[in-house]
Design a protein around this nucleic acid. Structure first.
Lengths: 240, 240
DNA sequence: CGGACCCTTCGGCGCCCGCCGAAGCGTCGC
DNA sequence: GCGACGCTTCGGCGGGCGCCGAAGGGTCCG
């Protein structure tokens, strides 16, 4: 009985894992979790490798279908091929040993400031803000995790009230739990998470900082999230 | 800006992926998805490698925390360290390219026979049987996937009626979707999936075949699943 | 007690793969 | 048209890692 007979999937699984088993390619995929398209040169700089090295790595990822690419003149843009790839990268990231562990327990006022340091995770909100939004929605009965992650009726109404319409065809889960690497608690992913993030960007609740995944919570956003979810808002909360 | 500065997680993520980026280790982990403990020698035979090779690989996986081990005299038993590891392996397996694709569309009678060829996936039912159970539960309103995978009230009653009690502390999701590699459709995972599988084994609905993940649906099981979920039962259904 | 068995360590071999700079092609903007 | 820029190809180098058999230690069983 050969290895192939025992588990035909083993070589394929190993090959897929091997694509992420290189620190440069891992850095590429982590960067691309911001949901945007990067050029080859940007990724090379980001990962501090030569352009020729980046080319080889990107070819592997594109050929394997983990990344999608688009040519615009001399620029080669790549992005994660879809939510499945993002989910794989997220899963690996959530299980990988932590290095710089975030503080476990923040005082409330510090937590309020921490909301300002948010980021996106693929196409949904992550970090302290993502977790805070998720927790608040859960606390207000907009999400129900008791029997698996689900959007409640109240949650659907709340979204509609905000003017958020969900995609008519549910080809991806409406609600998915995504374990936040820094907070070590789940934040909201799936179609709802993506729609919320889109809404937050479109309405100026958050703005992107630089070219990474960092986003800044704006005063408008802080106020809106306070009104709609009761998140701490420094303009309304006295400083302790 | 060095690679480490850009993404501190990248080397760790890559290291984790590297653990599964070897066909022998991948075969080990796929085998261990049956949820049982295997000895080092069994795994070596299974993957067709020398005992010394298996030792080295197992040491890597155990040291990294992906596997848990237990010594009993001269035997070294290892198992997957927990559902998180299983989820990672499942995720990789579901994204890995397929080789021997299962037939896409089975005639009903052949599908009935296919139910007999089931398997477990970590601690829940998989394959044709797992998918059939999942579909039947969904069709009868016991599971609701419209807003994320969820157990319905009817589902909870159904489980109670079967005598299945769920763990009081929900430290893992009650319901989780697990994409079935061979059927390419989701089967039920999570605490409910595990409880169902346990129940099916305890009540003789399925029995294990050999030392792998294959399980056989028994006449008792076929009858019980027909009664409780309307699954095809050859003793009640005329052969076409 | 002795042989069989499980498992581990060791050393050597061969293969794979990421890295780089140099050279080169195509695009872009002045 | 020319230089700058983005990207690709090529060849060589060095490091890493899985593989094996041999040797050996510990456990098990007749």
């Amino acid at each position: 009985m050969s290895n192939l007979d025992a588990h035909p999937q083993a070589p394929d699984l190993a090959a897929l894992a091997a694509l992420l088993a290189d620190r440069t390619r891992a850095a590429f995929c982590l960067a691309l979790l911001d949901g945007r398209a990067w050029t080859a040169t940007e990724l090379a700089h980001h990962a501090a490798v030569a352009a020729s090295t980046a080319t080889g790595h990107l070819n592997l990822l594109v050929d394997a279908g983990l990344l999608a690419q688009e040519r615009q003149g001399r620029h080669r843009y790549v992005r994660l091929a879809g939510p499945e790839t993002a989910h794989l990268v997220e899963t690996l990231a959530s299980l990988a040993p932590r290095r710089a562990a975030a503080p476990r327990s923040l005082p409330a006022v510090t937590r309020s400031r921490a909301l300002a340091r948010a980021r996106t995770c693929y196409d949904h909100l992550a970090g302290a803000l993502g977790v805070a939004v998720t927790d608040a929605m859960t606390g207000r009965g907009l999400l129900d995790w008791d029997q698996g992650p689900a959007l409640t009726g109240a949650g659907a109404h709340w979204l509609a009230h905000l003017g958020i319409t969900l995609p008519p065809v549910a080809r991806r889960p409406l609600v998915r739990s995504c374990l936040d690497w820094t907070e070590r608690r789940p934040h909201l992913a799936g179609a709802v998470g993506a729609a919320l993030c889109r809404h937050a960007l479109d309405h100026g609740w958050i703005t992107r900082i630089g070219t990474g995944r960092a986003v800044a919570l704006t005063p408008t956003g802080r106020s809106a999230l306070h009104d709609s979810l009761g998140l701490p808002d420094e303009t309304h909360t006295p400083t302790a």
